[in-house]
Design a protein around this nucleic acid. Structure first.
Lengths: 162, 162
DNA sequence: CGTGTACTGGTCATTGTGCCCAATATTCTC
DNA sequence: GAGAATATTGGGCACAATGACCAGTACACG
């Protein structure tokens, strides 16, 4: 019963509809996707049983909260202290996301700041974490492509199986 | 009327409640935040009038769609062709997000792939875009801190003004 | 070819929604 | 600090949506 599988093509179709109009009711979605209300309901229920959707926080724009600047900071860390560093990063509110990556640098950190000074302060407090060896900051100057999932959803929605 | 301003402390409180339970009804939110139902309703209405919330797509996990690998690709581009490159990137479904950044590299590109081969293919098609000079790929091996907004929300919720 | 799963169309009571109102706080502006 | 503009409140209303059922049917898989 607990499929534990991800989204199938039907899910993708529903997700597309929801992306188009997030406030839509279940009924509205049903006729948009040409499925019965019950089916939609069942899917939705499964989604939050299996926790397939990511946190709502993702829909909150830092800019609307007054954090106008975003930057990506790459950092090299002493491998032994990786977890400690991760913990310290978690304690910095302006750190929104941290990835452990392959390549020259070990961490890719997404941070925000209210303004240039603020961002500078945040960058400083990251560099101050014991175990962090080098950092370099790349300021986001322009959003060329805003986060999107639609193209992939369409692909998944099209492929009939699964 | 159209405040066009971002979120204030009350909004932040509501957003926190919504983050805690995204499926909560307006009534439930109201008593959680200790405000009247009408106030919540008014805020919500304003949010989607002013389009303060980011797209629902953000809540969809690529992994649940079968795209198990994520990578960040940095790229240098011929400045003149920046817009053309951005356009070409937009045509690649696996490209989820593109930022124009300061620093050595010009672009920071978030991509996904079904597996290593797929990711390699995607990286290749980016490198093939005219105007792209160099790229380097950083594979995401671990999520140290998953995207979050709660710490900032709490800060904004606390500060009484605005 | 049989069995289990998913989808359907239907009904039901309950709850939430969107909208209205007038009264009262609160905040802002001059 | 007076006055005006704006937010919040509590109340009420008709309507729509929800979640929960159910039995019948289509479908896919082994």
């Amino acid at each position: 019963m607990t499929r534990r599988t991800g989204f199938d093509s039907v899910d993708a179709a529903i997700l597309l509809a929801m992306t188009a109009s997030p406030r839509a009711t279940v009924l509205a979605l049903a006729q948009r996707v040409l499925l019965s209300r019950n089916t939609i309901q069942a899917r939705l229920t499964r989604w939050d049983q299996d926790e397939l959707l990511l946190s709502f926080e993702r829909r909150i724009d830092p800019e609307s909260l007054g954090y106008r600047l975003t930057a990506f900071i790459t950092a090299s860390v002493v491998q032994r202290q990786l977890d400690a560093v991760a913990g310290a990063l978690r304690d910095i509110p302006e750190v929104l996301e941290v990835h452990g990556v392959s390549g020259e640098r070990d961490l890719l950190i997404r941070v925000v700041g209210e303004d240039a000074d603020d961002l500078y302060r945040v960058a400083g407090s990251i560099l101050a974490i014991p175990g962090v060896e080098r950092t370099s900051t790349a300021l986001v100057m322009r959003q060329l492509v805003a986060f999107r999932m639609t193209p992939l959803l369409q692909i998944v929605a099209r492929r009939k199986g699964r």
